[in-house]
Nucleic acid binder design. Structure first.
Lengths: 212, 212
DNA sequence: TTCTAGACCGACAGTCGGTTTGTAATGGAG
DNA sequence: CTCCATTACAAACCGACTGTCGGTCTAGAA
């Protein structure tokens, strides 16, 4: 059962790649299943054999993109850095990555509406949001009580800037503004223990590459 | 030409109200034009006479909701308050208003995807975003250079919390966290001039109720 | 009274997402 | 080697949806 499985996985991946491009170029609504079929030279039956529906296809694309992002950000942050440093580096890396139209359109714009906000956040918690929350906790800059909420606000703010930069192109200015923003947040209250050391596990992804 | 015009405006408003409810309950994609037609007991032709298409109908709904929000927030903020106070009051008012499913779904979740991010921001600049930016400038807490970007981040953060509160219901905790968040931002660098006085015009909406 | 413009109607075409039925081929069981 | 379950894929088909278009009706101007 090898040749068959391999062929199946290959076409699945091919469809995934094509769908990623189409979704990012035309949005979820603007991309028809028939476009995907045409570009992948596949039949309806074949596609629906691999993916339960258009939304499931989108979700698979979303997961793949998120996983890739997580890897790239984790690779950017210098290991052994302080949590504050990691937070800064990670945020800037994220903003630069989000220059990619694929990420903008799929992850930031369409996902909440297509997947629903709750599912979006649930998935993000396993990727970018989870990473940010662990790093923010390691800085010990915010009380545990507010950690979740501050992490939400911070991620939303950074995502917004990612979109803003992508449109205006004021990269340097935005990056300085984000650093300023972060500095203000981190310099708030400090419970005393001093800057926390960042364990490698704080950045590690929790999930295996999903295959649904 | 009065009776006719009035009748026209009346049915337009009626359709707008019905569409607002349906869009907020089932989302943009989950709401069919036929649903709107059925509930409003109108014909296809009549609806397409008033609105160019489904997206135009959505945009009209969006504008109406934004205008209402702007009025309600402006009414909440105590007049003559300091800019810092106004920022806090306005933010909390916004979070509470966003408990409304209508606002969540239409303004925060579906709008970016349906209208496109650019148009969304362009419209928001005339409503919530514009208000926030003017108030933030009045606090003189951020350098003019970063004002636009910080305002974007702040609004995105607050919007996120509005959605979060709506799901988890931890209203008090979130409100305290937001106040903490704001305090940290405002306590950053201060160019010296002291707290700015908030002119009434800073909160005023710029636009007349749109009718497109 | 006549005529025009705007409100409204309803059938229709085209497209889309999804289902169903069918076929070819692979690989393990006997 | 044979048989059969399973998997990958194909194609016709269905219901639902959006948007268009020719046409009707009526209020109010001329």
């Amino acid at each position: 059962m090898n040749l068959k499985a391999e062929r199946g996985a290959a076409t699945r991946d091919r469809v995934l790649g094509i769908a990623t491009r189409l979704f990012s170029e035309h949005g979820y609504d603007g991309t028809s299943i028939e476009m995907v079929l045409h570009e992948s030279a596949l039949s309806r039956g074949a596609l629906y054999h691999h993916f339960a529906g258009k939304d499931a296809l989108f979700e698979a694309v979303f997961e793949a993109v998120e996983t890739r992002i997580g890897r790239e950000i984790a690779a950017t942050v210098t290991s052994g850095a302080s949590a504050e440093q990691a937070l800064r580096e990670g945020s800037l890396a994220w903003i630069r990555l989000a220059g990619d139209k694929v990420i903008q359109r799929i992850v930031l714009i369409d996902a909440p509406s297509v997947l629903g906000w709750e599912k979006w956040r649930e998935l993000e918690a396993r990727h970018a949001f989870g990473m940010l929350k662990r790093t923010l906790r390691a800085t010990r800059a915010v009380r545990e009580e507010y950690l979740e909420i501050h992490a939400h606000m911070l991620l939303a703010a950074i995502n917004e800037i990612a979109l803003l930069v992508a449109r205006t192109g004021q990269t340097e200015q935005a990056e300085r503004a984000v650093e300023d923003f972060l500095a203000r947040l981190l310099d708030g209250e400090r419970p005393g223990q001093g800057p926390g050391a960042l364990a490698a596990s704080d950045l590690a992804e929790r999930d295996a590459p999903t295959t649904t």
